[in-house]
Structure formats: C-alpha cells, structure tokens
Computed example of a mutant assay.
Amino acid sequence: MNSTSDPAAADGRPSEITVMIVDDHPMWRDGVARDLAERGFRVVATAPDAPAAVRIATATRPRVVLMDLNLGQTQGVVAISEILEGLPDTRILVLSASGEHQDVLDAVKAGASGYLVKSASITELVTAVQRTAAGSAVFTPGLAGLVLGEFRRVDTGGSGGRGVEQDDPGLRLTERETDVLRLVAKGMTARQIAARLVLSHRTVESHVQNTLRKLHLRNRVELTRYAIERGLTEDP
C-alpha cells in the first residue's frame, strides 16, 4: 500500500471510528492496522480467519470491519453474513487482492458496504473507512458500475425494463428524491450530491431522510442496496 498524505476529513473523525482488520496474512494485517492507527483510527481488534472474525467482532462490536475475502477454508463472504446477522449496525468494507466481478457481487450480496482492491493507496483507504463508517457505499473506481449493471440485468430479466413492481414504494419517490437516490447509490457524499444537483447540503440530507422514511430503511447502506436491487440507479 502506498504511503501518501492523509486526506481531508471525510464523514466522521478517525478517533471516533472503531475498526477491526481481518486478513490471513499477518504482515499485511499488522501493516494495515498500524497504518490506520497512525492516522487516528481506533483499531480494536484483528483476526486471521473467518471463524475468529465472527467471534471477535461479536465481542468488540467495531463500527467498521475491514476484511479480505480469501480467508482459507471459510471464505470471507460467510463471515460477512454471520457478522451482520449479529451486528446489523456494523459496516463491512472488503479489501481484497481480487477485483473479479463475481467476488464483488458475492460480497455485496452478503451485505458488504463496499469493496476496495489492495492496490488502493493509504489515502484512498482512510477515506473509504471514514465514508463506510458514515454509511456510504464505497467501491474502487469501476467496480460500482459492474455491480449496478449486474443487478439491473438480474432484476429486469434481460428485458431492458426497470424491474420495479407496481406496488414498490420506490414509485412514490419524487423526481428529486430519485435523483438523490441514484447518486447515493453511486457512493457520493451529501456534499458531492449537493454540488452535482446545485442544492444545499441541508436539502440533500432532507431528501435522503424522506427517502429512507418512505422506503422503511434505516441507513444509506440499506438505501444503496435497495436502489441496486430495484434497478433505480439508472441515469434518466
């Protein structure tokens, strides 16, 4: 991982974010933990494999679990599902050497909030952990488009339709709420969305909260997953 200067604060100060690192390579695991700790994050635990990850996460309740997918006999996707079953408010960010499409899809389907490849710089990693803790979906550039395209294909059955049932609550969203939803699902922050749509930051947050209420969802991760699964992320 490249050693570069820290980014400007994203969503949430590092000192307020608890992180757990899961990787079966001790040198990599310890190196990432050291890099994040040096930048102010509270690294509360590390784990070498999936069973340990589930057990230790349950005990330490980190805000973000930074996890590799290749964890020996038990794959990371299993640990993702099991951790989230017991800790639904924890966010899981995959950090993997693999950028294979199927690996990304499997991780997202299991509940991961985002996916970075290990070639990411420390600057990118720090920003990704902060944004993941704040509830954003974060992907290495190019991977978000793959995920969105695959879910559109599955949900529409290859017919080219939007794949939304007529009684879907997403149909009750206003045009502006739908615009904001698309950009949230692409991993943009509220300030980035405000700049894109020429709105105030407060107005964007209001649209997000209204959308969450209408869809009966709790946070932006669930909102992103809803948008992907319903094919609501297509550009107008």
Rank of each mutant, 00 (worst) to 15 (best):
S3L: 15
S3D: 11
T4C: 08
P7M: 12
P7W: 12
A10W: 04
W28C: 11
R34W: 03
E38W: 10
F41C: 12
T46G: 01
D49I: 08
D49H: 14
P51M: 03
A52V: 01
A52W: 02
A53I: 06
Q75G: 07
Q75Y: 07
P88A: 00
P88W: 07
V94D: 05
L95R: 12
L95E: 04
A97E: 03
A97G: 08
D103Q: 12
S113Y: 05
A120E: 04
T123H: 11
L125T: 05
R131G: 01
A133P: 12
A137E: 14
V138R: 08
V147K: 11
V147C: 00
F151K: 11
R153D: 09
V154T: 08
G158T: 04
G161R: 07
G161P: 05
V164P: 00
V164W: 01
R172C: 00
T174E: 12
T178H: 12
L181R: 05
A185R: 02
M188Q: 11
V198K: 12
H201W: 03
S206P: 03
Q209R: 15
T211Q: 06
R213L: 03
N219P: 11
N219L: 10
L223N: 00
Y226D: 12
I228H: 10
T233H: 04
E234N: 03
D235K: 04
